[in-house]
Design a protein around this nucleic acid. Structure first.
Lengths: 204, 204
DNA sequence: TTCTATTATTGGACTCAGTACAACATTACG
DNA sequence: CGTAATGTTGTACTGAGTCCAATAATAGAA
């Protein structure tokens, strides 16, 4: 569960993985996430039920392919930041870089789902797992660049706050429907909301 | 799942509910959350398996009794705040009021669990559902006091950030073990980390 | 091409959480 | 004492997720 799915985007649409993703997307839209069984998905994809679990550790993972890929890319971006640079500014820049690549059409399944038919709670919980993964990531990054423990209250608060703001950006972006602006703009605004205070607390 | 369990604390320790809670707590410590089945819990509690579901909608709910109660109380506190007061300050005050009542011993089961034996992911996801519930709560509160839409990016970012910071406070407090200071102190520090920036963004 | 070592796919059997519903017990209360 | 509400239980079911061993498919070396 919740593991990264490195760059699942842009793969041949005939690999088992892609076929499963497509079948799932269709069925979720037709019948709702909750009412779709893994058996139905694999049946439509023309593979066995077990094959599903070769590619996804949980049913909900298929909802978050885009987001998982984005988090994977963020991981790499953050690792590439050299020591001794302003942590928050780099954090923001890295996030915007990752998000710049995401077209207005590539909305995570879970979020459109939520839009079309309020599957809310079901899907939401699995989304939160991503928030947590991103929090961890950010906490480690901040800790490294601020020479603090990643378990530090200061670091954890900041990481959670940032991850929460990022999450809000995704959510609002997805809900804005067809007329939505690029994700990076939302992300930028969300950062503005929290980062002023964080800068003050973190640099000291 | 994730529903509030209004004030479960301070009830006679012989009601089915309390008996189940106690049995679960014991078993989780003995065998880990993951390796404990609902059947085992109810067996030790001397009730039927179904009775468990009369009181908890999910196995993980029993981990979060304390936290759910705290969120319920926060809900009431926030509803009681009269219009036209500084939203963030009131938010902080309400949180501290709620948390003041929580003794150093009343650590949520899930968090001690995590300490004793890293059941991590399993329990963590269910904890995040609480973070979400609190986010919603805060978003509604902020929206009301700032005359904005609760779906607003600004409002959502702030709410998520605050909820994340609160979460961090709980986590660190729990992990600090026996020598921990009162939860309110952690909460206060966590607020400091984010609120400066939020004040700037929100009042305008 | 043929052999071989990986890797992908499958079948089958299993555990357990969560749901639905009807029957039964208990309690409160007029 | 009778009745309605509430708590508890039994039974039967669905579906996610795990485990493991068997079988295909494939790539790469010889």
């Amino acid at each position: 569960m919740v593991q990264g799915t490195p760059n699942a985007v842009g793969r041949p649409r005939t690999s088992s993985r892609a076929v499963i993703e497509d079948a799932a997307a269709e069925l979720f839209l037709e019948n709702t996430y909750a009412l779709t069984t893994i058996e139905q998905i694999t049946q439509r994809a023309g593979v066995s039920r077990n094959t599903f679990f070769n590619y996804f550790a949980a049913k909900s993972d298929v909802l978050w392919v885009e987001l998982d890929a984005a988090i994977d890319r963020l991981t790499l971006e953050l690792q590439a930041v050299p020591e001794g640079r302003p942590a928050l500014a780099e954090m923001r820049a890295a996030t915007l870089r990752v998000v710049a690549e995401i077209g207005v059409d590539r909305v995570p399944l879970a979020l459109t789902q939520d839009d079309v038919m309020g599957t809310a709670e079901e899907t939401r919980v699995s989304g939160l797992a991503r928030l947590a993964r991103r929090s961890d990531l950010i906490a480690v990054f901040l800790a490294r660049h601020l020479n603090r423990d990643p378990e530090d209250l200061l670091v954890l608060s900041a990481a959670n706050a940032l991850s929460g703001a990022i999450s809000a950006a995704w959510t609002v972006w997805a809900r804005d429907g067809i007329g939505r602006r690029p994700l990076a703009e939302y992300m930028s605004e969300a950062f503005d909301v929290v980062s002023a205070g964080l800068t003050a607390s973190l640099v000291e």
